[in-house]
Simulated assay, not measured.
Amino acid sequence: MKIKEIILFTTNIQKQKQFYQNVLEFELVLDSEEKISFKTGTSLLSFQYDKKAVNASHFALNIPSNQEEDALLWLQKRVKILPDGDDLISDFTSWNAKAIYFYDADKNIVEFIARKNLNINSRASFSSKGILSISEMAIATTNIEMVYNSINNMKSIPVFDGDFTRFCALGNDEGLFILINKTIKKWHPTQEEAFTSNFIIKGDYNFSFENGEIKELL
């Protein structure tokens, strides 16, 4: 599943611009008072201004399959890593993947994930220019099955892992929607409470998620 763009909302667009452009050295490709966009491989990571308070989101970026250690060293010079217990790299053996987590300027949980099944390796020194694409967008809800049905009704989507009780991943190794039941599951790895956050996504699936409801973009 390809994710071409996610648009998150922020009350402080300049703070997010400074973080992604100056701290993470992402390439800024759109810069306005209302919206900023950064190149993330074949995808765009965008932030749109909203004067109302917004809840933090969780999303992931694919990095080369062999570079989780290099990415960790690169990130440690720039951000505080969110540990998974005693480990700085989460090992998802059933997904054949390894991931690193940190906060951005809005306390969104950002994840760099190296998926071994993609088998996309790099010999270059790791940098933000090596990011492959947006990998995951998390959706916190009280009704996983309802969200699944809304997405699946647009176009059939496979269940990658989990079920409709507490956690369900939809899609494939290239791109996933991570659906969690926020009443019984918290964000990994911080174990903080997950709140429903609004966003817009474009790619193989095009919709807005606003106040817990999905609206297809036509």
Score class of each variant (00 low, 15 high):
residue 1 M to P: 10
residue 2 K to P: 00
residue 6 I to M: 06
residue 7 I to D: 02
residue 8 L to S: 02
residue 8 L to A: 05
residue 10 T to W: 00
residue 11 T to Y: 01
residue 12 N to M: 02
residue 13 I to G: 01
residue 13 I to H: 02
residue 14 Q to F: 12
residue 17 K to P: 04
residue 18 Q to S: 14
residue 19 F to C: 09
residue 19 F to K: 04
residue 19 F to D: 05
residue 20 Y to Q: 09
residue 20 Y to S: 08
residue 21 Q to S: 15
residue 21 Q to W: 00
residue 21 Q to G: 01
residue 21 Q to Y: 05
residue 22 N to F: 03
residue 23 V to Q: 09
residue 33 E to D: 15
residue 37 S to P: 01
residue 38 F to G: 05
residue 39 K to S: 13
residue 47 F to S: 03
residue 48 Q to R: 14
residue 49 Y to E: 10
residue 52 K to C: 02
residue 54 V to T: 15
residue 57 S to Q: 10
residue 58 H to R: 12
residue 58 H to A: 07
residue 59 F to S: 02
residue 61 L to C: 14
residue 63 I to D: 04
residue 63 I to P: 01
residue 63 I to V: 13
residue 63 I to N: 04
residue 64 P to R: 04
residue 65 S to Y: 03
residue 65 S to T: 12
residue 65 S to N: 08
residue 66 N to R: 09
residue 66 N to I: 10
residue 67 Q to M: 12
residue 79 V to F: 08
residue 83 P to D: 07
residue 84 D to T: 14
residue 88 L to N: 13
residue 90 S to L: 12
residue 92 F to R: 01
residue 94 S to W: 12
residue 95 W to Q: 09
residue 95 W to L: 10
residue 96 N to V: 00
residue 97 A to G: 08
residue 97 A to L: 03
residue 98 K to D: 06
residue 99 A to C: 08
residue 100 I to P: 00
residue 100 I to A: 05
residue 101 Y to F: 15
residue 101 Y to C: 06
residue 101 Y to S: 06
residue 102 F to L: 08
residue 103 Y to H: 14
residue 104 D to F: 05
residue 104 D to S: 07
residue 105 A to F: 05
residue 105 A to D: 11
residue 106 D to Q: 11
residue 109 I to Y: 02
residue 110 V to S: 01
residue 115 R to T: 10
residue 117 N to L: 12
residue 119 N to P: 00
residue 122 S to P: 10
residue 123 R to T: 15
residue 125 S to G: 00
residue 127 S to P: 06
residue 127 S to M: 08
residue 130 G to D: 14
residue 132 L to V: 09
residue 132 L to R: 04
residue 134 I to S: 06
residue 134 I to L: 15
residue 135 S to F: 07
residue 135 S to R: 06
residue 137 M to Y: 03
residue 138 A to I: 02
residue 139 I to A: 06
residue 139 I to S: 04
residue 141 T to Y: 05
residue 142 T to G: 13
residue 146 M to T: 12
residue 146 M to S: 14
residue 147 V to S: 01
residue 148 Y to I: 04
residue 152 N to L: 08
residue 153 N to G: 01
residue 155 K to S: 12
residue 159 V to W: 03
residue 161 D to N: 13
residue 162 G to N: 10
residue 162 G to M: 10
residue 163 D to H: 08
residue 165 T to D: 15
residue 166 R to A: 13
residue 166 R to V: 09
residue 170 L to I: 11
residue 172 N to A: 11
residue 173 D to W: 06
residue 174 E to K: 13
residue 176 L to V: 09
residue 177 F to N: 03
residue 178 I to D: 06
residue 182 K to T: 10
residue 183 T to I: 07
residue 184 I to H: 03
residue 184 I to R: 07
residue 184 I to M: 08
residue 188 H to I: 14
residue 190 T to G: 03
residue 190 T to H: 07
residue 192 E to L: 13
residue 192 E to I: 15
residue 193 E to M: 11
residue 193 E to G: 00
residue 197 S to L: 00
residue 197 S to P: 00
residue 199 F to Q: 02
residue 201 I to K: 00
residue 202 K to S: 12
residue 204 D to G: 11
residue 204 D to C: 06
residue 205 Y to M: 06
residue 209 F to A: 07
residue 209 F to S: 05
residue 210 E to A: 01
residue 213 E to D: 12
residue 214 I to T: 09
residue 215 K to G: 00
residue 217 L to K: 11
residue 217 L to H: 11
residue 217 L to E: 13
residue 218 L to D: 12
